[in-house]
């Protein structure tokens, strides 16, 4: 029963973080803040993976997976930061409205 309660606790945190992240990504006008939202999302998932490993007793597997996730996360963030910088150089602004030119 303790396991179930713990799972529910992690699950609630996971869901709350997801809500924060998705809210941030969809509502903000700033490209950089979109990136912050994405980071929060990845953090939520990282937490959930570790929690799953802890609860099921496969912590070694979960740890090795989390390490890989972190490495990939870094590369994603670096690429995204590069895009944002390039974007800033082109438009002299980080407003996401500049990224709505392609439509239809």
């Amino acid at each position: 029963m303790v396991i179930d309660q713990l799972f529910w606790l992690f699950f609630m945190t996971f869901i709350l973080l997801l809500i924060e992240g998705f809210y941030c990504v969809t509502v903000t006008y700033n490209l950089f803040r979109i990136l912050i939202g994405l980071e929060v999302l990845i953090k939520a998932v990282t937490l959930f993976v570790i929690a799953a490993g802890y609860l099921s007793g496969h912590l070694a597997l979960a740890q090795s997976i989390v390490i890989t996730i972190i490495v990939i996360e870094v590369v994603v963030v670096v690429v995204a930061a590069g895009i944002i910088l390039g974007f800033f150089r082109e438009f002299d602004s980080l407003n996401v409205k500049n990224a709505r030119r392609m439509k239809g």
């Binding site: 998705f22 990504v25 969809t26 509502v27 979109i34 996401v96 990224a99 709505r100 030119r101 392609m102 439509k103 239809g104």
Partner: peptide
């Protein structure tokens, strides 16, 4: 359909959610 593709990324994220 063209009107629905507004170019707004948050719309697309919401669609996929």
């Amino acid at each position: 359909i063209k009107w629905a593709h507004s170019g707004n990324i948050s719309t697309y994220v919401i669609w996929s959610l």
